[in-house]
Design a binder for these strands. Sequence first.
DNA 1: CGCATTTCCTGGAGGC
DNA 2: TGCCTCCAGGAAATGC
Length: 278
Amino acid sequence: MPELPEAETIARELDAALAGEPLGRVVVRRQDMVHGDPRPLARSLRNRRVVRVSRRAKRVVLELEPKAELVFRLGMSGRVTVCSSDAPLERHTHLRIAFGNRTDAKMREIRFCDPRRFGGVWCLAGGAAWVGKSLGDVGPEPLPMRPAQFRAILDRRRQLKALLMDQQMIAGLGNIYCDESLHAAGLHPLRLSHTLDAAESGLLLRSIKSTLRRAIKSNGSTLSDYFRTNGESGSFQARHRVYGREGEPCKGCGAGVLRIVAAGRSTFFCPVCQPGQP
DNA sequence: CGCATTTCCTGGAGGC
DNA sequence: TGCCTCCAGGAAATGC
């Protein structure tokens, strides 16, 4: 389940591998996973090179020259890997893009693989018409966010879990980092957002940032579907304090971690560290 | 407006 | 061993 730290890890690794490289052969193996520019992707990408690879929300963005963007939304099980062009093809590989111009060396390529197909690839080029699923807009990034802006987001009356999961409100948090951030701040996931005082809202924003930064340092959390661009696992799952740990002792106080459903998702919290609701 | 529910999809887990 | 059912969840759509 790639969220902000996983997308950031992939973006950094892709940037190291791809910055400055020209794009080569394109193979679209599942047309319905590619959206945006109505032209064939191979044509849209022809004679373009990667300037840099960045992240926005949970999305990985290849910034190209001449100006265009190739956006990867990973959904639940999306993976972007870098490998040799002759590496065995994994099941559910929907897109392959060769890169580099070293004719002497083995050709390398990036691959997009997504078994559950909740993700997709968007080619934003030219001002042409649009095909396929739309790539909706997202709210502000949490890492550079200031306390006043966060306070304004909390001002509506919503359960904290639902609000933090809402990509229009704040971009990049998913189920794991929502629960971990709320635990770090000692706030119950069903607490109504507008009831937080200044100290609590400040603490929650700091908790979100520190949780995300620590997860990025660990290259994200590998539970089942997420892997780095070289196929290795992230390691932040070993540091989860509540997520996925129903019945196990809270790493803060030892009380049993509870699981409820909030915002339609499994939600893990410690009833002692995060008091306040039934 | 907020929130619950449903849909998409596959692989892994558990039951028998 | 081999079915079968259930479940996980990001995002969008629908219903209350």
